[in-house]
């Protein structure tokens, strides 16, 4: 004889399982792989604003965890295009979202910058009109515009770059700007297109 299914008990069981899943969080294997791929902290560097320069910040700080502090946009600025070892402190990064709202941020001693998601949740796509090194200035050309490799800053010109493509949905600069330029990486964010030796 086939016993009828107790639908009430079955519903209760499903409900308990759902609540348990919500409380414990469903595992995200893909995200776990991304976090693991970032490796451990550098020797002598504790988790904080100066850790992991050049890594995609929002993998951990994007709201899924494991970091509790959540960013909307974050990244690292380097001094030179082909040197991923020289980060740049004091670089000024200007961001503009699709609604025309601007945000300005300055990099710290590790070349890192970050914007808390509680401060700004931009509407994508984002653009980066300028990444400047205000310590390296140049005189405007006779025409009034800044020379190649320089952008307007204040009343003069500063060494810098402008991003000419869109950031369509990812707040981690390093998702596209990996440390090594290649078929799927633009290379690091930089302000000086020349090599450190001027070549």
């Amino acid at each position: 004889m086939v016993r009828p299914v107790d639908t009430g008990s079955l519903a209760a069981l499903v409900g308990v399982a759902a609540v348990a899943g919500a409380l414990t969080g469903c595992p995200d294997a893909e995200h776990d792989i991304q976090v693991a791929a970032l490796g451990g902290e550098a020797p002598g560097v504790s988790p904080g604003p100066t850790h992991r320069p050049g890594q995609p910040c929002l993998v951990c700080h994007g709201g899924i965890g494991p970091a509790k502090l959540q960013f909307s946009v974050a990244g690292t600025v380097f001094g030179y295009r082909y040197d991923p070892n020289q980060t740049l402190q004091g670089a000024q990064v200007q961001l503009e979202d699709a609604t025309g709202y601007f945000w300005h941020v300055t990099t710290n001693s590790a070349g890192n910058f970050y914007i808390l998601s509680s401060d700004w949740s931009p509407t994508y796509p984002l653009t980066v009109p300028s990444v400047l090194d205000p310590s390296q200035t140049g005189n405007p050309l006779p025409s009034g515009s800044c020379g190649r490799g320089y952008l307007s800053c204040g009343s003069g010109c500063c060494l810098g770059q402008a991003m000419i493509t869109l950031d369509n949905r990812d707040g981690s600069c390093a998702s596209c700007h990996g440390l090594t330029q290649g078929t799927d990486s633009v290379g690091p964010v930089y302000v000086n297109a020349n090599a450190p030796d001027g070549g």
């Binding site: 300028s130 020379g147 490799g149 307007s152 402008a162 000419i164």
Partner: peptide, 11 residues
Amino acid sequence: IGITMVDAATE
């Protein structure tokens, strides 16, 4: 669409 060029002197 979407790009605002601040300065023409860019890479």
